[in-house]
């Protein structure tokens, strides 16, 4: 399913899905039956007989998904399937993607810049930058591997010199009532304790913070800079 509108504008959804079915090797009659089934599955009912040129963006995305599913592939590539959709349309499209995987057993590779979409449907993540794989793994595993945000609590309040020395560990995002929200320079929690010992203070709590997916992404793309 390409990102751009690869639709035959002067044909109806039914005609073109049947056409793609035939090109995939279905007999003409089987392709026509299959077009009805797939279009019903993606939620295009009577509109399937109208030329595609009059369709809304959401309908066009559904026709493209139907084209991709017509021959029951084992794996489908969805390039930005929620492009141009309103929040409700996005939710419905992602529901469909989840159904495709859960009910049809089809593997789905979804390419998207909308991290909310990725977070909702993906269980494995590959972060690409200019054709290079920057990070890959399960969503939870990547979060853990790239987790840098921690909350620190000390036994006694830090003095000004100790607070300034926190910059050795990373960027102080927030400081309130003896709690310090930090983004570490390196994902090394043992280093925090060494730092506390060297500065003569007692660290009593290190709480890893839940990183947002965009923070994980930025860290994967730019390991040396903070989110």
């Amino acid at each position: 399913m390409p990102e751009y509108d690869a639709l035959i504008e002067d044909a109806s959804a039914y005609e073109q899905v049947a056409f793609w079915g035939e090109l995939s090797g279905l007999a003409p009659e089987a392709a026509r039956d299959r077009a009805h089934e797939v279009l019903y599955f993606v939620g295009l009912d009577e509109a399937r007989y109208r030329p595609v040129s009059g369709y809304s963006t959401g309908m066009r995305q559904r026709v493209k998904l139907a084209q991709a599913l017509v021959h029951s592939p084992e794996l489908i590539f969805l390039d930005e399937p929620t492009n141009g959709l309103d929040p409700d349309g996005r939710r419905r499209m992602l529901d469909l993607v989840l159904r495709v995987h859960a009910e049809l057993g089809t593997g789905v590779i979804l390419a998207s810049h909308l991290l909310g979409d990725v977070e909702r449907v993906a269980d494995q993540l590959v972060i690409l930058d200019q054709g290079q794989i920057k990070a890959a793994g399960s969503m939870a595993g990547l979060r853990k591997a790239l987790a840098r945000r921690v909350e620190l609590r000390f036994l006694d309040p830090l003095d000004a010199a100790q607070e300034a020395a926190l910059a050795d560990l990373g960027i102080v995002l927030e400081a309130r009532n003896g709690l310090y929200d930090l983004e570490l320079r390196e994902a090394d929690s043992a280093g925090i304790f060494r730092w506390a010992e060297s500065k003569g203070t007692t660290l009593i709590q290190v709480t890893p913070r839940h990183d947002r997916l965009d923070e994980v992404l930025i860290r994967a793309l730019h390991p040396q800079t903070g989110a």
């Binding site: 035939e22 279905l26 599955f41 939620g43 159904r99």
Partner: peptide
Amino acid sequence: MPIYAPTLPPAPDLRHGH
């Protein structure tokens, strides 16, 4: 509001096309 099919049966044999 679109009406979705309960599920999608597998595609027929792909070896009978023209």
